[in-house]
Design a protein around this nucleic acid. Structure first.
Lengths: 146, 146
DNA sequence: TTACAAATGCAACAATGTTGCAGCCGCCAC
DNA sequence: GTGGCGGCTGCAACATTGTTGCATTTGTAA
């Protein structure tokens, strides 16, 4: 685990960029996150560090551009970011689950998505599957309440 | 044309609402649209009629609430609206195609989406499948350019 | 250690959607 | 046909999320 963390800086520099505190912090945060984080989530989690809003946006953009993270748009029209598995070139087929109750978005890595047949002339590049419903925790709470 | 309009009004009134010009216009527009329209698209299409921005938002919200239309969020984080097929109660499983080149979103009615298996405790309500790529028209133009 | 370009912080802006409220008008009853 | 009620609209102001310009700071390699 330690070797992974120290290699963060090297991995960033290998992309021809600088290993700045902001990039390291976001990279570490996404690595430990079990779900796709919004910019708001990230800002809150790193509140103590004093990074500027804009810096976080730019770090996230940079990560997406360089294939370190994936950006998806949730149903509330906010961007969410999840770390891209470094050894998953076929990460195109990514499934997500959004909980209607708590609003969190989970990555369903074990769900395989295959591209369906398209109309004549259309060419698909990536497929995104998003399931909406209730997550395990909210499902339990909901049963208690109502 | 008149018969279509009058049936629209009846359909609206059957929901316990008033058949106002704004609702009729949006309903007609979505009916003739071959793709999911954004609020911006709709505002532009109805520019001559003088409907207020907010009115259109409210009409669209009302349509979604009453099952007349579906709302989806595209990758540019804007809402898009498509008419709900009146005879498709299992319309939950809806597939869309977004063209990277022109940004338009198409409804793929013929593509069937089935919900995948979820982790323990999760319950899915609706599934949305979105394919990103190039549409037939842009695919052709792209071939010419490059 | 130094210099340079990349990265940051700040402020202002842009795009999209929401809320409050006064007044209008579609619809039903007569 | 017409009167009145309440749903609907228009306007203005606001909220949220993300972007751009520019001066300053800082990571990195020489």
């Amino acid at each position: 685990m330690r070797s992974i963390m120290t290699s963060h800086a090297e991995r960033i520099r290998a992309l021809g960029a600088r290993a700045t505190p902001a990039r390291l912090a976001v990279l570490r945060l996404l690595e430990t996150a079990e779900r796709a984080l919004s910019h708001h989530d990230i800002e809150a989690a790193l509140a103590g560090t004093g990074f500027d809003r804009v810096t976080l946006y730019r770090v996230l953009d940079w990560m997406v551009e360089n294939g370190l993270a994936h950006r998806l748009t949730d149903a509330q029209r906010v961007f969410r970011f999840s770390l891209a598995a470094s050894n998953a070139p076929a990460h195109n087929s990514h499934a997500h689950f959004r909980c209607e109750a708590c609003g969190k978005v989970f990555c369903l890595d074990q769900v395989l998505v295959q591209a369906p047949a398209l109309p004549q002339g259309f060419s698909g590049k990536s497929v995104e599957l998003c399931i909406t419903g209730q997550c395990a925790r909210c499902e339990g709470q909901d049963a208690q309440q109502s």
